[in-house]
């Protein structure tokens, strides 16, 4: 009977191309994996996450909301407390460009921060199985979720790719 308990196989790599090779091999076998690196690289993105991030959609919607808010606030406040200057319009759109513009940036920027927190699942104060402090230093890591029966297969894929060391932990 095969071992069906959850396991995390952690491969630690010195070379980025070795880690990417390991990712390709575990992806080919449809394993759930996570790759860690001390630095963002396009080569990693191309292999692991080629799709576009949804962060930009959040930023765009927030920026449009901010622009609308800035102009609306200026116009409504001016209409509520009109300060007439000769025959000029009370709702003076060119003058309100600045609050409108600044609110566009403000809303977009703050929403982008929240988007990072949501999509990156931050803050995360819990320990992450498979994480190694060397991943913020100079090592690359590939962590694969598998069952106890698949551990040897994953380990061999890691070692064949050039892992410095491979460790097995309880779960991902």
């Amino acid at each position: 009977m095969s071992d069906s308990s959850s396991r995390a196989v952690v491969g630690i790599f010195t070379y980025m191309d070795d880690a990417l090779e390991a990712v390709k091999r575990v992806k080919a076998a449809n394993f759930d994996y996570r790759m860690y690196s001390p630095v963002p690289r396009h080569e990693i993105e191309e292999v692991t996450y080629p799709e576009k991030s949804p962060v930009r959609i959040v930023s765009l919607i927030a920026a449009i909301t901010g622009c609308t808010f800035g102009f609306t606030l200026s116009i409504l406040c001016s209409l509520d407390w009109p300060m007439r200057t000769s025959a000029k319009n009370i709702a003076s759109v060119p003058a309100f460009f600045v609050p409108g513009y600044e609110c566009t940036i403000l809303f977009g920027g703050v929403a982008t921060l929240f988007a990072i927190l949501v999509f990156c699942r931050l803050p995360n104060v819990l320990k992450t199985a498979g994480y190694d402090p060397r991943f913020t230093h100079d090592k690359f890591g590939v962590v694969v979720a598998c069952t106890g029966g698949q551990v040897e297969d994953v380990k061999s894929r890691m070692m064949d790719s050039g892992a410095d060391e491979v460790d097995v932990r309880d779960s991902l």
Binding site: R34, Y36, K52, S53, V55, I116, C120, L122, L126
Partner: peptide, 15 residues
């Protein structure tokens, strides 16, 4: 609690 996983880097660099 930043870890530097590939998904985190993807969203981070985009943002």
């Amino acid at each position: 609690g930043w870890r530097g996983s590939h998904a985190q880097w993807k969203h981070y660099t985009s943002a």
